[in-house]
Design a protein around this nucleic acid. Structure first.
Lengths: 198, 198
DNA sequence: AAGCATGCGGACCGACGGTCCGCTTCACGA
DNA sequence: TCGTGAAGCGGACCGTCGGTCCGCATGCTT
């Protein structure tokens, strides 16, 4: 364990600039409008810089996504119930889906672009594995008679940027999250509906 | 309604050749191995021919997919129960998922490639709309208390080529379909599990 | 101040999806 | 059978993209 040299100041500055540029491009055009040339140009850096920092297109989008979801992840790992450990599976899952839904609804374009870029290795992505393990555990507790691992994949499959944009009407920004919660509740309740909260 | 001139023989021959070439390329390499140059070359036709026939990459893959699922679609529309009209929603949905699962398991690579190519307009694809309408109707009958349109999207979202490959172990090729059926059954049963068939 | 690892930029590459247009091939009527 | 016009064909061509590479600048450390 040698003492690591501190990260150079320009590197830090550039990483931020690149992430911000990506965000701006995502906001103003569709997800396919975000080419790495454009990102580099808007960030005022060379293309090589983008790749050294993030490896490839998928890495860049993943970094942005991770930034948006770090808070939720921390809360799930160490926060107070019902998000954190301690709450019963049903409440914990609904709280989690509420959080994930909010992030997804607020970042649908980013989500689409990320899925597009990741393609087949989406399921090896550490972020995905974390969400999957969390949901899988909760399902295993709540419904030991079903295939918990599959249900976890199924719930996550629904967090698709295009689907969210497709089924979110202008006047009801949380319709998606509501329906996801409702579905999860239906899956968890072996003995008839119990409602999905306030 | 003027009398249409019959389709030229070479056109028919080429359409078949292109579809077959696509199939072969999908089988021997990953989905991203199927470039339109390669398809044209292997089919022994010019690139222009591919595009005139199928419009673009998405159209080509969609044509192939439609070919694989036409039989199921016909059976759902006009066939005998439980696939066709007449059976109770639960049985009809399970039969349908069984059929769709078989197709998906046998064409996972094609499915991935198609999703990749379609991107955002996946939800406007006529094939998708048909499956969605079918599932949505059945859910609406079986579970009027839930968001049937959403549940239909959710079930279809699970038919993802990469997910299928990721969760299909070598020794159990139908694990995916079994889990999908189980999930659908859990969603349909308001009053506890009733089993998913033989 | 000097030395050196680290980071930087942008020219460069191969591959891809998609377009275009001059030429060929086929179906049909005479 | 043959002429003709339309339908189809091929493949050169284009712009763009993700990704690589290496000579040069920057900023830490001593």
């Amino acid at each position: 364990m040698a003492q690591q040299r501190a990260e150079r100041a320009d590197a830090t500055r550039n990483r931020r600039a690149v992430l911000d540029a990506t965000e701006r491009l995502l906001a103003e055009g569709g997800g396919d409008h975000v080419s790495l040339d454009r990102v580099a140009a808007l960030a005022g850096v060379g293309k090589g810089t983008v790749f050294r920092r993030f490896g490839n297109r998928a890495g860049l989008l993943q970094a942005l996504l991770e930034e948006r979801s770090r808070e939720l992840r921390d809360a799930v790992e160490n926060g107070p119930p019902p998000l954190g450990p301690g709450a019963p599976p049903r409440e914990r899952m609904l709280a989690f889906l509420d959080g994930l839904g909010a992030i997804a609804e607020g970042n649908a374009v980013l989500l689409s672009a990320h899925d597009q870029a990741c393609a087949q290795d989406r399921y090896d992505d550490p972020s995905y594995r974390f969400w999957h393990r969390h949901l899988g555990t909760l399902f295993a507790e709540g419904r030991p008679d079903l295939d918990a691992g599959f249900l976890a994949h199924a719930l996550l499959a629904v967090f698709d940027g295009d689907l969210i944009r497709h089924m979110t009407p202008p006047g009801d920004p949380r319709r998606f999250t509501r329906s996801v919660r409702q579905m999860a509740a239906a899956l968890l309740d072996r003995d008839g509906p119990q409602g999905t909260g306030p």
